[in-house]
């Protein structure tokens, strides 16, 4: 969301208590401060006097979680895919969800912005709080949730439109009335795609390579100015070079966004994430700082999985 995100600038997130966003941020998201938080997400949360749950142990206890998941259950028909997940996701961190196929990690991810509701025949129970607000409350609009919690999919899925239109699409339907050119440049820079496409913004997005398409999808998501970006195996359809580009992008984005990423690739999880949650058969087995989870897992099953003995 920010023009000030060049890598030198992570100071505000950690040190400044002031919740003063530069004016241009405010102007782009008119609807109140909780929505304009990213670099100062922490400061914000601290001021908004802690919502429900007390900070959980695994990370910095001074932080309020960006996302708080309580006793989440999910069913596909009769298939009980998530069986009581509790989880806190910290702001401005990359949280990786790992686990064998079918463990529920993608389902969990899609519960975080109510994308699962679009699938017929599913049921959900439990609570998901974003900055203390219940996204499943009866008076919460799923469309508003998704504007705040964006998502990047497994397979690059740019619209069959120009690069420029892809980036502006979400912002336009959300009533963005600022400078579209600036928005496009900012979003594409954040997604580390600007230099590659700046001379062909008005050509079809489908002419880009897979890795470029995926970074365009990231840019498109960022252009809506969410707080949280969910990524469902964003690099699994890409070759190694494109993958490393996307990973670099993700690492830079955490200054401004809270990122939750599903991945099958444990090296990827260990490279880019700050915290890792291991899911198995619809349950959260262990969630810890990434280096700890990979080197000193608490649970035997986690160890078996991360060392490749099963999965």
């Amino acid at each position: 969301m920010l023009p000030t995100n060049e890598s030198a600038d992570d100071a505000p997130a950690d040190n400044l208590p002031a919740d003063k966003a530069p004016p241009e941020h405010v102007s782009t998201s008119s609807d109140s401060s909780p929505r304009a938080p990213s670099p100062n997400g922490r400061a914000n949360a601290a001021e908004d006097s802690a919502p429900t749950s007390p900070p959980e142990a695994p990370t910095d206890p001074a932080m309020d979680p960006k996302l708080n998941i309580q006793d989440l259950h999910f069913w596909y028909g009769d298939n009980h895919a998530l069986q009581g997940i509790h989880m806190d996701i910290q702001p401005n961190k990359v949280t990786a969800l790992i686990g064998p196929s079918g463990c529920g990690k993608s389902t969990l991810l899609r519960c975080l912005n109510r994308m699962n509701e679009l699938i017929e025949g599913t049921t959900m129970e439990g609570t998901v709080l974003v900055d203390g607000q219940d996204i499943y409350a009866s008076n919460t609009d799923p469309v508003m949730v998704r504007r705040r919690v964006g998502m990047v999919f497994q397979k690059p899925n740019p619209f069959p439109k120009t690069i420029y239109k892809n980036v502006t699409w979400g912002a336009e339907i959300n009533g963005y009335d600022g400078d579209l050119d600036a928005l496009v440049e900012r979003s594409l820079r954040q997604a580390a795609l600007w230099s590659e496409v700046k001379d062909r913004l008005h050509t079809s997005a489908l002419d880009l390579s897979g890795g470029q398409q995926q970074r365009l999808c990231i840019a498109r998501t960022l252009a809506v100015e969410p707080d949280v970006v969910l990524m469902d195996e964003p690099a699994s359809a890409l070759d190694p070079i494109a993958t490393s580009k996307v990973e670099e992008t993700i690492t830079e984005l955490k200054q401004d966004y809270t990122i939750v990423i599903v991945t099958h690739n444990m090296q990827q999880a260990s490279r880019i994430s700050d915290e890792t949650a291991f899911l198995y058969m619809g349950r959260l087995v262990e969630m810890n700082p990434t280096d700890q989870l990979f080197t000193r897992p608490e649970k035997d099953r986690t160890e078996a999985y991360v060392t490749g003995r099963f999965g």
Binding site: L118, R146, G170
Partner: peptide, 27 residues
């Protein structure tokens, strides 16, 4: 039209009408 395009539209905060009229019908 691939479902993934509709999914992308919804994930960007589109209403159903917006997803249909501004993504699916053009596609």
């Amino acid at each position: 039209v691939p479902d993934s395009l509709g999914g992308a539209a919804y994930a960007l905060g589109a209403t159903k009408y917006e997803a249909v009229v501004r993504v699916k019908v053009p596609a």
